[in-house]
């Protein structure tokens, strides 16, 4: 469940969102043109950007919830991982998803490590286990990031442009995984990939002029798309089914 009340976000002294209200526990896809504030909104929801107004995740106000509790509610999967650690391996990295469940000052438990193995198996990337994280291809790291998010056991997962760096085949793999995750998690998908958005079939929120336009159904028709994006659409082809 995500609740936004009178949300206002400024970034670099530029107003991004104004007087935004939303309350939903549906899966949603957030669309919008470049710079409309999709990622900014996502990051604010995850508690890494400042804002005014109220944001609640599963009933918890994120400003008053300690980071550790918040990370149990929501995971954020970036399009690309900025990683400064040259030595961390895939399994060590996925294990970080269990950090919030680890007892303070102690090592990760065997149970945590079993969860990592399971997650790697689920995404068919066990063979990457001992590989350095920095050596992965975009397709591989997308799967690793998903495995980590799954290990965090959060009710809500935000995907921030999951297919932005991927070829069609890898995009399809990711799309199928996201669709599977929809059964158990609340998925928030941010993307420019309309094929993906159409395939995932979430309610759509389009960010325009600092406001959220909520489309519960009937988003993917050429007229609406033309109005929002300002270019001609010719009956989008569905690739992933």
């Amino acid at each position: 469940m995500i609740e936004l009340e009178n949300l206002k976000i400024e970034f670099d002294q530029k107003s991004i969102l104004k007087n935004v209200d939303l309350k939903t526990d549906e899966d949603i896809t957030i669309l919008g043109i470049n710079g409309s504030g999709k990622s900014t909104l996502a990051k604010a929801i995850c508690g890494v950007l400042s804002y005014s107004g109220t944001i609640k995740i599963n009933g918890k106000n994120i400003q008053t919830t300690p980071p550790k509790e918040l990370a149990k509610e929501i995971s954020y999967i970036p399009a690309k991982l900025e990683n400064a650690d040259n030595f961390i391996t895939v399994s060590e990295f996925v294990l970080l998803g269990r950090f919030v469940y680890k007892e303070n000052f102690f090592a990760y438990s065997e149970d945590d490590k079993t969860k990592v193995d399971k997650a790697l198996k689920l995404f068919n990337i066990e063979y990457l286990k001992e590989h350095p994280l920095n050596s992965l291809s975009s397709g591989e790291s997308a799967l690793v990031l998903m495995a980590q998010a799954l290990c965090s056991d959060t009710k809500t997962i935000i995907f921030d442009e999951p297919t932005a760096n991927l070829d069609p085949k890898n995009s399809k793999t990711i799309a199928l995984h996201i669709k599977k995750l929809k059964k158990t998690k609340q998925i928030i998908l941010i993307t420019h990939d309309l094929h993906l958005a159409k395939f995932i079939q979430n309610e759509v929120i389009f960010i325009k002029d600092k406001k959220l336009l909520h489309y519960k159904k009937e988003f993917f028709n050429d007229k609406i798309l033309k109005k929002l994006y300002g270019v001609e659409f010719n009956s989008m082809v569905l690739k992933y089914d």
């Binding site: 508690g47 890494v48 990370a71 149990k72 970080l96 950090f99 919030v100 000052f105």
Partner: peptide, 23 residues
């Protein structure tokens, strides 16, 4: 040493660490 795992996450990036629940 007590904060070794927090440091492991911070070393990836501080934004990532915040997202993973590190203060």
């Amino acid at each position: 040493f007590a904060y070794r795992y927090e440091l492991q996450i911070i070393n990836i990036s501080s934004e990532f660490a915040t997202l993973k629940g590190v203060d």
